[in-house]
Design a protein around this nucleic acid. Sequence first.
DNA 1: TGCCTTAGTGTCAATTATACACCGATAGCG
DNA 2: CGCTATCGGTGTATAATTGACACTAAGGCA
Lengths: 229, 229
Amino acid sequence: MRHAADGPRPALTVDCVVFGAADERLEVLLVERGDAPFTGAYALPGGFVREDEDLASAARRELSEKTGVDLSYMEQLYTFGAPARDPRGRVVTVAWLALVRPGVHRLEPGTDAQGAAWHPVADLPPLAFDHAHILDVARERLRGKLRYKPIGFELLPEVFTLTELQRLYEVVLERSLDKRNFRRKVLATKLLIDTGRRRTGVAHRAPTLYRFDRERHAELERSGYLFEA
Amino acid sequence: MRHAADGPRPALTVDCVVFGAADERLEVLLVERGDAPFTGAYALPGGFVREDEDLASAARRELSEKTGVDLSYMEQLYTFGAPARDPRGRVVTVAWLALVRPGVHRLEPGTDAQGAAWHPVADLPPLAFDHAHILDVARERLRGKLRYKPIGFELLPEVFTLTELQRLYEVVLERSLDKRNFRRKVLATKLLIDTGRRRTGVAHRAPTLYRFDRERHAELERSGYLFEA
DNA sequence: TGCCTTAGTGTCAATTATACACCGATAGCG
DNA sequence: CGCTATCGGTGTATAATTGACACTAAGGCA
């Protein structure tokens, strides 16, 4: 059975995969490591779980400490525990996934991370530990979720055009979508509100700006529904 | 950063939710606890992760030790880490999900579990720790998977009738399905092989026995496909 | 004012989902 | 041995959804 003294134990950390969309690209928040191992390499923000701390709280705290980004919600992604994933010894990490609008969070790197910055997932620097693998799992999960949850909105600014939303879907799903079918489908959800405003200053027809209907979304969440892109 | 000496750490366990179907019910494999806390209560088979052991291996080992059931594949379910989930101190557990055909595994309870047995999920004894919650999460995951993966077969005997398969779906999804539509859909997958045999000795028309086409399934797995019930 | 660029719109065909009711085969019983 | 009870097995029509596909509209700028 479970005795607190049962032999050596793995250490436990949390790591956060925070995605955002900017310039029609998918980006991820990384910190530059200041200490060994992997000094100077990039890593997912994360760190040790404290003795009396909920896992989700640990993820939020570490993300905040390492990057200055405060998030109220993250989804648990997967727990990675290969014995050799950390050269210092056995470390099991619970990875978390979050989607944010880049730009609304000021990045304030913590003392033990030299920098926190957005990196396009299509062009990543070498990552510490097994973080490249964690990121792959996160991208796969994001793809899966995007197909049946309208989470695309979480990644975009408060107001956005349908074309911007479509580009995001295309980037994440890695395939092109038909404009008319995409619009039909996404508008059919009734989750978008026409703000009545248009984006001006562009050298072409001014596109309509929409925002996400959080109330309707919460309502549908409660009753359980699907969404397909 | 991560120093092995960083303060007190949560202990780490694995717990296994093993589902099977029998008598048109969904069952789960539980062990009776021999030691405190929760002496005499039922629990999911599980235990501590060893220092140099992969998480999946730990789950397989604990399941085998506690119940005698050897499985080659389990899917990671979720990691539970509420600070108070174990009265003895901080214990984080990585839960795993497996589907088996009950009857093909001999149950051999380990020394520290008084008994390993199948229990219908619709009528469970009180469970130790937060295992009732873990089981809820597992049932939800099973429902989700059943909708788009043909995993129902994993829970049934080697040969089965379409009605048995449908009952299983109905039990897991908690709704009734149309017989003709179900048959059409499930046969359209071409994942069932008509064995040419029928179940006899029943006081009604003898139903055709099918078995699951593992080769075709593996093939489709590779190319990626969906399945809807 | 003409041109370049992106926004925005509709239809048709194919596919898929759903609703729905009767005859067939077998064992058991009287 | 035939009657009955019980579950097995089948098809069709309608509605909803998907996917393919091309042109006009509007705005800024040269």
